[in-house]
């Protein structure tokens, strides 16, 4: 269904202006990516450090990617990133959906006050709790292990509890009551009815958590020390420190670290945009 337009008078001139603006802004937004990819395919430093800069390489040199893969143990980094991202996503989905379900459907004393507490914790700056958390993990010997980066996920995240609660609230209460009369336990109602129904919201949570765990820098920076524990992002940072003038290698590495996020985003972009809209607006 074509929507009737309100903001613009539907004249051709305005359509042309709109498209011109959209297309030129798109080129601006894409340009950095293009620069990243083309630099990564240039042959050697003479081509990179030439003036004026050439946007496109003389010939496409895919050797850079091979060389970058040889220079650093990227596969180990990839393994660590996958472990952290996978476990933290599983943890976030389980713990947040359980809490969200309780806040949305069950009646218990202090529920609304506790939910207010959940929302309040979203306002607490990341750095407030950071130092004691670091000390806690160092006391129990978790420094230089992957654990501090995924174990806390099993204790829920305020942001995702909020997002999922909004979704569970939209499921009619009659469904809950009917299942109860049919003899379902509360936990059965959760995992047989509510959890499957919330699939779109769960997918949103998975994607958002993937992107944030995959791209996290501060956590790995303070918790991981030995190279075989590095994540891809931390590996890229170390690589940058060593090859800081070899921009063809650097951009090839940057490209490789970026691609997984791009793929996940393109698979689930509708869900992401929906999720951001829920947390942003419907408070």
């Amino acid at each position: 269904m074509k929507r009737k337009n309100i903001l613009f008078n539907w004249s051709h001139l305005r359509t042309i202006i709109l498209y011109t603006a959209l297309i030129s802004l798109s080129i601006l937004f894409i340009m950095p990516f293009l620069w990243m990819v083309t630099t990564s395919l240039k042959s050697g430093e003479e081509e990179i450090f030439s003036y004026p800069p050439q946007l496109f390489p003389k010939h496409l040199n895919f050797e850079n990617y091979k060389r970058v893969l040889e220079l650093f143990p990227w596969l180990t980094f990839l393994k660590n990133s996958v472990i952290i991202t996978f476990l933290s996503t599983v943890g976030i989905v389980l713990s947040s959906s359980l809490a969200a379900f309780a806040f949305a459907t069950l009646r218990f004393k202090g529920r609304d006050k506790l939910f207010f507490l959940v929302i309040s914790t979203m306002m607490i700056p990341y750095y407030t709790t950071l130092i004691p958390q670091y000390i806690l993990f160092s006391k129990i010997g978790w420094i230089d292990t992957l654990k501090p980066l995924w174990v806390p996920a099993f204790f829920g995240s305020a942001y995702f509890i909020f997002l999922l609660r909004q979704f569970f609230k939209s499921i009619p209460r009659e469904l809950f009551e009917a299942a109860k009369i049919d003899g379902c336990s509360t936990f059965q109602i959760f995992y047989k009815i509510y959890f499957p129904l919330a699939k779109p919201a769960i997918i949103t949570v998975i994607i958002l958590q993937f992107i944030s765990a995959w791209g996290d820098f501060f956590g790995p920076l303070i918790y991981l020390q030995s190279e075989e524990k590095y994540t891809l992002v931390l590996g890229l940072n170390a690589f940058r420190g060593m090859y800081y003038t070899s921009w063809h290698y650097l951009m090839a590495a940057t490209c490789m670290v970026t691609i997984p996020s791009l793929i996940v985003f393109l698979i689930g972009q509708k869900k992401i945009i929906g999720g951001i809209t829920i947390t942003g607006m419907k408070s």
Partner: peptide, 19 residues
């Protein structure tokens, strides 16, 4: 297109922009 840059890991974004 406008959204994609915000999902790139920040270390990758920063490295690219140094260049």
């Amino acid at each position: 297109i406008f959204y994609i840059p915000s999902i790139v890991p920040i270390v990758a974004t920063a490295t690219l922009w140094i260049w």
